[in-house]
Design a protein around this nucleic acid. Structure first.
Lengths: 224, 224
DNA sequence: ACCGCTGTGACACGACCATGACATTCCGCG
DNA sequence: CGCGGAATGTCATGGTCGTGTCACAGCGGT
């Protein structure tokens, strides 16, 4: 849905929010310091910023983000004092959320902020299958927010299989649509490619979850 | 400072907030029902909306305001349950504040919301991608404030790629849209031009940040 | 005529892929 | 219950393809 830059030094909170936001379909980049965050600004649509950071503190990070552009910022902190809220918003934050926060509340606030700042050009070519995200426009595949590097043929194979979730495609069909040369005796070609894709997107390639073998027929995509 | 429409049925809260916001320099119009509020929308820059209202309730008022335009809405309510917050934001609110609220906190949130919504006035053809600035009106491209001299074809290529950030464009597509002659066997034309643009806008052309190669498919603009 | 832009070809290099041999699993049948 | 064959998984490797890179020549404009 959108690219979230999460700056949070507590690893537990960081991982929890990353997982939750990823599940909501966001591309989350999580870093643990302000310096790292400032280096990643170009890749973000919105920043979720903890105030208590090692090194340069959250307020300073906020000011620098403001100076660099008009990227929306949601402050996330344990300090819910009125003075803190006012100071945070005056520093340029778009919203101020007090920890602990329910992920879906945070997600709703992210959406509310993006509604204001995002252009109507929303990217909607993303598909979500469990913890697998598949963007047919940018041709990016990611798992748990982690981008997966697929080779061209592997990517074409995955796209082909996922374009018909649940349907079994024979090796012959795949050879025609993915490799474009229809006839090729018996060959482990498709098998080998499927194997490579599995090794990259499956948690346990021996027990595939996304690309399943249908013995005697071919392969099928999709968690069923 | 700005015109605030306060919709709140409790007279004590209403008068208190009106006084406080007026002191901050806002022009406050305070009404006690949704019907009255909806009649006053034209004169407001931002709405502070109580959810517990007699007659039509706050959610319905919110939806009607949304339907009427994109006037920013701050929900103000005693119900701070997570579900309520999510529901309120989903209904189209820009912010959600739980009573009791310090007037200056509310004022800071009003300012934060207005900072976003007043901006569309400066809607220009200037786009910002990281440290790259792209002005589609004046056709000026600059990096870190430094103007970049691009040749006509290079500029068209960059504009084409950046008009669909994140989307992968094939060499064929680029030949058609940038060069306007569709068919041209195999040619390194696009590659060469991409290379030239990279050498001018990328900090490290060997590891491009803005124009990325998607092996086997084409090129993609924008950091992902 | 100069100069910058643009298209083209040659070359290098790395990544990828087709291939075949071998291991493993699955399934039916004795 | 075990066996055998077929289908599939796994792996290493050399060849091939895609891309980066460069130099150069035509061309058009100032």
């Amino acid at each position: 849905m959108s690219r979230v830059l999460l700056i949070e030094d507590d690893q537990g909170v960081r991982d929890g929010l990353r997982l939750a936001l990823t599940r909501q379909g966001h591309a989350v980049r999580a870093v643990e310091s302000g310096e790292q965050g400032l280096a990643e600004l170009a890749d973000a649509d919105v920043v979720v910023l903890d105030l208590m950071l090692p090194g340069i503190d959250g307020f300073e990070v906020c000011r620098r983000i403001r100076a660099a552009g008009n990227l929306p910022i949601i402050m996330l902190t344990a300090r819910g004092d009125d003075m803190d809220v006012v100071a945070g918003l005056e520093a340029g934050a778009d919203d101020y959320v007090v920890k602990p926060v329910q992920p879906r509340v945070l997600e709703a606030r992210i959406r509310a902020v993006l509604r204001r700042t995002d252009e109507p050009a929303q990217r909607t070519d993303v598909e979500q299958y469990g913890d697998l995200t598949l963007d047919r426009a940018s041709l990016v595949v990611s798992r748990n927010g982690e981008q997966v590097g697929l080779a061209p043929t592997e990517l074409r194979l995955l796209l082909e299989l996922s374009s018909a979730p649940g349907r079994v495609l024979s090796r012959q069909q795949l050879l025609e649509s993915v490799w474009e040369h229809g006839y090729l005796g018996d060959s482990r070609l498709v098998d080998a490619c499927v194997q490579r894709v599995r090794s990259k997107i499956e948690a346990d390639p021996a027990r595939p979850h996304y690309i399943q073998t249908v013995r005697g027929f071919g392969y099928r995509f999709g968690p069923l």
